[in-house]
Amino acid sequence: MDIRERIARRVAKELSDGDIVNLGIGMPTMVSDFIPEGVEVILQSENGFIGMGAAPKEGEEDPDIVNAGGMPITVKTGASFFDSAVSFGIIRGGHVDATILGALQVDEKGNLASWMIPGKMVPGMGGAMDLVVGAKRVIIAMEHTAKGKPKILKECSLPLTAVGEVDLIVTEMGVIEPTEKGLVLKEIAEDVTVEDIQAVTEANLMIDPNLKTMDI
């Protein structure tokens, strides 16, 4: 299985029936393809609606309805549109149960860096800073390393998106939870050992006494 699919499948299991969820661009968007049967989540799109559906069929795109990546999308029956102030009121006001985002770096204090690399890439934070501060749960879906280098660090070196807001990190190697004492490895992928995952993680991982095989 493709590692991105593995991550998306595992993240999808974190969602509960009825959750209001905001998915970031890229891999997080894939999560909606793997939501377990019997679980219905309501997707929020930061550019102004609740009740996002699937991508439209070719030829059925409505130029007035796009997702947060600017791509044509559909809305489900019962959806609602609103302006950006209401949209971010929903986000900041704690009305979103979970946001799923990618990351450049995450550290053992639950800090997140996801919006710029000084001198290289400065796309802007868009809605990410509001999402991370406002959503009830922040789930990071990312590949464990970038070109072999750890992304899970003792301390983020890139400019932060938010301080101490990350609730769960899901990578192709395992599931890690930031706690007050540090990072706890909760699940590990079938083909990975604890030594393997620690070797590519700069921060120290505490091993959950009930460490499980990653459930995908």
Binding site: E46, D83, S84, A85, S87, F88, G89, I91, R92, V122, G124, M125, G126, G127, A128, M129, D130, G134
Partner: peptide
Amino acid sequence: TLVPQGTLAERIR
């Protein structure tokens, strides 16, 4: 100047 999107909406409001 980059401004978080929700902050931008509220500053204009």
